[in-house]
């Protein structure tokens, strides 16, 4: 049996957990390739026009996996309890996929996280193990091992980012959902341009969750969504260490439509660029915008130094 994992949305958050869990249990899996033009084209064709770009990409990855595996892993998240809620997309994605590909004999493998009815992560993974015909003890061991792998990976990310924060180059804080900024087709080009321009991108989403969740209320009190809380909470942590902030969103992200406006109105002491990605334009337009943003930051910085 082969499990297919779409390389989109929460893959970018849970890849270590999923891969090591399946590895430990000796279950074969394939991950769809990096997002490319064709995946986005297919995903868009299967999507309702107005869906967000991230969701279109997701459907493209699911489509790619359709005839290449026995099951496609599509977890479902209702919320993260006290840590916050999620965009309605994550509650609907399982049924959305099932209905979109109904006529293409799709088999879905799912686990549900719903803290309100004690569907916590560990219980969900034990259940997942059961569906995969594994003993409870085996699944528990695999889950705990996978959790360790996940933790190690996060620590590595944090250490690497710490190192980058000490570089003397211009540093730009990138506030973007993990599934957008780590996407090779819509996120990586931005990071590459920033690096080519001689700046160091600092990724807001890498900041330790505990700290971000303790910090977001400094900027916004009633922010409901956990992923946005983490991003907003990274701003007080990194703000004084960076020279500018980029808000990168996938068109037309619901939560970001409000959160970005709050940030622009409340974070006053750093230059902010609001960058909306719709997957349509080539990189040229974006390159120009990023370049001029960096020019402005450089100019301001020089001006300050000149005065001192």
């Amino acid at each position: 049996m082969i499990i297919g994992i779409p390389r989109a949305l929460l893959y970018h958050k849970y890849k270590h957990l999923w891969k090591s869990f399946f590895n430990e249990l000796g279950i074969d899996y394939i991950v769809s390739p990096d997002t490319n033009k064709e995946i986005l084209r297919k995903g868009s064709a299967y999507s309702i026009d107005e869906s967000c770009l991230s969701s279109k990409i997701y459907l493209g990855h699911v489509e790619w996996l359709l005839d290449k595996c026995d099951y496609i892993l599509i977890p479902r998240f209702s919320d993260y309890s006290r840590n916050g809620t999620v965009c309605p997309k994550f509650l609907a994605i399982y049924d959305l996929v099932a209905n979109t590909f109904r006529d293409r004999s799709i088999n879905l493998l799912s686990y549900s996280i719903n803290p309100k009815v004690t569907h916590v992560e560990m219980a969900a993974f034990l259940k997942l193990g059961k569906i995969l015909d594994k003993k409870k003890s085996q699944s528990l061991y695999a889950y705990l091992k996978a959790k360790q792998a996940e933790k190690r990976a996060h620590l590595l990310e944090i250490t690497e980012q710490e190192r980058l924060l000490h570089e003397s180059k211009l540093k730009i804080l990138v506030i973007a959902h993990r599934y957008n900024i780590w996407d090779k087709y819509i996120g990586e080009p931005i990071l590459n341009i920033l690096r080519e321009q001689g700046t160091v991108p600092i990724i807001g989403d890498i900041a330790p969750q505990k700290e971000t969740l303790a910090n977001y209320t400094q900027i916004s009190e009633t922010l409901p969504w956990v992923f946005n809380r983490e991003l907003v909470g990274s701003i007080p942590i990194y703000k004084d260490l960076v020279d500018g902030i980029i808000l990168m969103s996938a068109f037309p992200c619901g939560p970001d439509s409000l959160v970005n406006e709050i940030l622009i109105r409340r974070v006053k002491d750093k230059p902010i660029l609001n960058l909306m990605i719709d997957g349509q334009e080539g990189n040229t337009g974006m390159e120009t915008r990023l370049e001029s943003f960096i020019d402005i930051i450089r100019f301001k910085k020089d001006e300050c130094h000149g005065r001192n």
């Binding site: 309702i48 107005e50 309605p88 997309k89 609907a92 994605i93 209905n99 109904r102 619901g254």
Partner: peptide, 16 residues
Amino acid sequence: SFGCTPEIDAMPILQN
């Protein structure tokens, strides 16, 4: 209204 995620996600089901 434009961009209403819950309702957009209901549309594939309505189509079915």
